[in-house]
């Protein structure tokens, strides 16, 4: 009886919060049939938005993966003054409003910003171009790999790494052959979360993108643009594509994950 109630409550909550809105998105997208939805997401602007989103993710995710693992190693394996600060700093993007992040980039890279004037003097456009969108995306998605990897690094301890060292392995060999295999599922999960966040990021990117249609419009910006211009099918169809991207990422993750209890 109690089990049944628990199940009802848990599933009911999920249906209400997750499934409901998601099914409405799918329903509205295909309300007028598959054709209009397909046409809406294959316009040059829509295609460009999806491509841009993928490019941003393709740069921000690997960068955050590499630096996330480095940060985790630094936090767990190399005590240094200010370690607590770094640890807290990593979580900042979770607490900070993405819009604030966007405005911070604005101040740094704006025409009159700290770096902006020098950069634009050298013909480098950061704000309202791909670089700032990557920066904004990387900023808001940095905690995930670090937060996944830190606990497992603590848990596995240093014994295996020291064993590898006494067996002749260099730091890099130790990392590649011993540390990384031990943390790879956490890294992979961190990558999935980072990717999901990168694909779905809105606030920070919307501030720094300039929202140039067909140029600096990511998929989420495109969705909001379509919605604001009363293109309901376009907005929901693009949302469906975004949702499918996220689902593919999560499914890939589940397929990669080893069957539990193999070793």
């Amino acid at each position: 009886m109690r089990r049944l109630t628990l199940r009802t409550v848990a599933l009911g909550y999920l249906a209400l919060i997750l499934l409901g809105p998601l099914s409405v998105v799918f329903w509205r997208a295909f309300e007028k049939g598959f054709g209009p939805a397909w046409n809406a997401v294959t316009t040059p602007e829509a295609m460009h938005a999806f491509q841009l989103t993928l490019v941003i993710a393709a740069i921000a995710v690997p960068a955050n993966t590499i630096f996330g693992v480095l940060c985790a190693l630094l936090i767990v394996r190399h005590p240094f003054p200010g370690k607590g600060l770094l640890n807290a700093l990593v979580d900042l993007p979770l607490a900070l409003s993405p819009v604030v992040v966007g405005f911070a980039l604005f101040l740094l890279y704006g025409r009159t910003g700290w770096f902006g004037s020098w950069l634009s003097g050298h013909g480098i456009q950061v704000l309202f171009a791909l670089p700032s969108m990557i920066l904004a995306t990387a900023f808001v998605s940095i905690p995930f790999v670090v937060r996944e990897v830190v606990p497992v690094l603590r848990e596995i301890g240093t014994d295996q790494e020291q064993a590898a060292e006494t067996l002749g392995a260099s730091q890099w060999q130790t990392f590649r052959r011993v540390t990384f295999p031990a943390i790879r599922w956490e890294v992979a999960y961190g990558v999935v979360l980072t990717t999901a966040r990168s694909l779905g990021g809105y606030g920070a990117v919307s501030v720094v993108s300039g929202r140039l249609a067909g140029q600096t419009e990511t998929a989420t910006l495109y969705v909001s643009d379509r919605y604001e211009n009363f293109d309901i099918v376009g907005a929901y169809a693009a949302s469906v594509v975004l949702a499918l991207m996220a689902i593919v990422v999560l499914l890939t993750m589940n397929l990669l994950r080893p069957k539990e209890g193999v070793h």
């Binding site: 491509q51 993928l54 490019v55 393709a58 690997p62 990717t195």
Partner: peptide
């Protein structure tokens, strides 16, 4: 896959 997506885009 990500790298491929990047190269295509």
């Amino acid at each position: 896959l990500l790298a491929a997506a990047f190269l295509v885009a």
